[in-house]
Amino acid sequence: MTNAFDILALPARLSLDEGTLQQAYLSRSRQAHPDHGGSDREASEVNAAYEVLKAPDKRVKHLMEVAAPEAARSWRTVPLDERMMSLFSSIGQTLDASAKIVERKSRAQSALAKALLANEEMQQRERLEELGSSIASRLEEMETVLPELDTRLESDPASLETWKEIASLQARMAYLTKWQAQIRERLLQLMM
């Protein structure tokens, strides 16, 4: 497995600020790009590494893959807590309801028929935005935990307990990121 941290010459850590990552990516790209003496192959690796490290959920997963001890890696299933489950069901309902509006709007042929949907549409949009921002703040909250986990890994890189915590955090991050993308997509559909 190629190590994205190595490719961009960055320390293998859970937390990584955007500016540092961007800087590392741009300076590696200057050498790796085929226009500047690099090759397609080299540049592809640099691009893939950037893609993985940019998204916190993917970055955490990648670190687990390259750095977690074997025992921690086999530990896979992560049950979702009640708070996540209830969020999940309200997201499901909102996505369904808003899909119906998108469908009706796309069938409407006149400006007047579309305008009749405006009120309902706006309520759906508000609901989606509300959910979107609550997801965003939870993701932000999770990211603030990363430096602390890094410190714990530094003192004991093989701690199963720390790695389990990381795995559980990663699973929640991945779900939230996926839902966030779905909400973003639906908001876009409503605007179109």
Binding site: S110, A111, L112, K114, A115, L116, A118, N119, E121, M122, Q123, E126
Partner: peptide, 22 residues
């Protein structure tokens, strides 16, 4: 379609007002 332009705008405005009130 042309005759109902103002009506359509009115509906959207009302929806926006309601959103603002919320």
């Amino acid at each position: 379609d042309d005759a109902t332009q103002t009506l359509a705008v009115l509906l959207v405005e009302r929806a926006m007002e309601a959103a603002l009130e919320r």
